[in-house]
C-alpha cells in the first residue's frame, strides 16, 4: 500500500482565496454554463476551484506519498450553507479525514474534508472529496 496511514488527521495550514469575478467567469466558461447569474454568485462546484488553490491538492497528495500519475477523482460531496459571492475572502481549511483500501490494497482511498468560511458570513460550505489511488498488483512489488 502506498498511502501513509499516519497522515490521517493531517491538515494543511488554512489559506485564503479571494473570489475574483474573472475566476467566476472563467469557471462558467470552462463548465459550459453561459448563465450570467454565475458571474456574481459562484456556481456550486466552484468550491473545487477554491480548494485547489495554493497547490493544496497536490501538497496533500504528496504528504500522503501518493504517485500523482495513479490518482483518480472517485467521489465528491458538497454541502452549502450560504452563497459564495464575488469579492469574498474565503478561508479554506483542508484535512485528511480517512485513508482506507479495497481489493487487498490495489485500490486505496483518501477522504479529504474541506471547510470554506468567510470572516463575516461564517461557514459557507463544506466538501468531502474521495481520491482513488490505483496501486499495481502485489505480484509487481519486490
Amino acid at each position: 500500500m502506498a498511502l501513509d496511514r499516519s497522515r490521517i488527521g493531517y491538515c494543511l495550514p488554512a489559506f485564503t482565496v479571494t473570489v475574483e469575478p474573472a475566476a467566476l467567469a472563467a469557471f462558467a466558461e470552462a463548465i459550459g454554463d453561459p448563465d450570467p447569474a454565475c458571474r456574481e454568485i459562484a456556481p456550486p462546484t466552484f468550491m473545487k476551484v477554491l480548494e485547489g488553490q495554493d497547490n493544496s491538492s497536490r501538497r496533500i497528495m504528496e504528504a500522503l506519498g501518493a504517485d500523482l500519475k495513479r490518482i483518480l477523482h472517485a467521489e465528491q460531496q458538497f454541502e452549502y450553507v450560504a452563497p459564495i459571492r464575488a469579492g469574498m475572502k474565503v478561508s479554506v481549511a483542508r484535512c485528511v479525514a480517512d485513508i482506507y483500501d479495497r481489493r487487498e490494497g490495489q485500490l486505496e482511498f483518501a477522504l479529504i474534508e474541506t471547510t470554506f468560511a468567510d470572516e463575516e458570513a461564517g461557514v459557507l460550505g463544506r466538501s468531502r472529496q474521495l481520491v482513488l489511488v490505483r496501486n499495481p498488483p502485489r505480484s509487481d512489488e519486490a
Binding site: 463548465i31 454554463d33 456556481p43 456550486p44 462546484t45 477523482h73 472517485a74 465528491q76 458538497f78
Partner: peptide
C-alpha cells in the same frame, strides 16, 4: 471527473 460533476450541478441549478 469534477467537470462532469460541475455539469450535473449546473443541470440541477
Amino acid at each position: 471527473g469534477p467537470l462532469q460533476g460541475a455539469q450535473l450541478s449546473a443541470y440541477v441549478s
